[in-house]
Simulated assay, not measured.
Amino acid sequence: MAIQGQDWASYQSATPSTAGLAFTFIKATEGTGYVSPRMAAQTAHARAAGLVVGFYHFLRPGSMIAQAAYFVAKAASQDGDILAADWEDSGVSCAAKDQFIREVKRLRPTHRVVLYCNTSYWKSRDTTSYAGDGLWIADPNHPSGSPGISADWLFQQYSSAGGVDRNVANSKHFKTVADLRAWAGGTTPEEENPMAGITKADIYDAVWKTDKAPAPKTSTSLKTNPTWAPVSLLSDIANNVRAIRTAEAGQTAAIAALAKLVGSGVDTAAVVAAVEAAIETAVIDVNINSKDA
């Protein structure tokens, strides 16, 4: 069953019916000089009914920093309440809307902060797709739960018939009221465990028996094991390490032998050049083998 809610302002009752509701958004403030005279009563009524509570601020042109401070100071919010920016005034730009949301999030970092706007604003005026912690979209022209936007959303205001602003929560995000309450409180609803039903034996077989990584060209087991299982990886690494150590030992012996010849009249510069060339060849060979692996 869809999770239903409403949003309330001063022109609605101080004690609206909460039958069948799980959440409400209550108008708190507007600009920097208005506080809803029914906010306190509506808030007490919603809390008494056990609703998830949210508060919204109607954005007006002017300082977004000042409006954010005014909103958080006047809203009757407490931990677990949602905060919202109501973007309906054409004098408020998209950049200003974004600034307000970010400032509210800075001032109230433990609260979820969302954006409310209609589909026209979202499609035509918004240029950043920034909605804080989620989008509350007003769309009475599409069915409940199916707003006419491609963007992800959390809440849809789908009807204002009879002066009642009806909302629904997105069932993709909130399967239960407990999910909504947990999200509002700052945690993500638990998702289905993708590892459910998988045993240790299944994991062992997947890792050690059915790995399909292609074997490198230098793999000693290429002919018998073209789909290189991790166990072959360990074996091949060991073989490569042994080969590198053998080559290193041979180069060390060669350098030592050449050094003895220096005292027998061999050109020192020629010895140095020969050693450097041998080292460079060895490094190139190791790098090539590493790339193949």
Rank of each mutant, 00 (worst) to 15 (best):
E192Y: 04
E191R: 14
Q157R: 11
A75Y: 05
P194H: 04
D79N: 12
Q4A: 13
T246C: 01
A2T: 14
G163D: 13
S63A: 09
T176S: 15
H111G: 10
T110A: 12
G162C: 11
T18P: 07
F23S: 08
I82P: 07
A247D: 09
V113G: 02
L107R: 07
S13I: 04
A19H: 08
I279D: 08
I288L: 11
D139I: 02
N118T: 06
A95I: 03
N118S: 06
A44Q: 15
K260W: 14
E248R: 10
G134T: 05
G145D: 08
N167S: 10
A131G: 01
I137K: 11
I203V: 15
V35C: 13
A254Q: 13
S36C: 05
S264G: 07
F23P: 08
A85T: 04
D205S: 11
T32R: 03
V286H: 07
T218I: 15
A253V: 00
A2W: 00
A14M: 08
T224H: 03
Y34S: 06
L180N: 13
L51G: 02
T119M: 00
L261S: 11
K123F: 00
Q42P: 14
T110R: 12
G185L: 05
V272H: 07
W87F: 00
V168G: 09
T29G: 06
A2F: 01
W228P: 02
S235V: 15
I82N: 07
S129Q: 01
V168A: 11
I65N: 06
P140Y: 02
E30H: 02
L222C: 10
A247C: 01
T32C: 13
K223V: 13
V168E: 15
K200E: 01
N240A: 08
L135I: 03
I137Y: 02
I284P: 00
I203H: 11
A19S: 15
V241G: 04
T18C: 13
F71L: 06
A95F: 05
T268D: 14
N170H: 04
N287R: 15
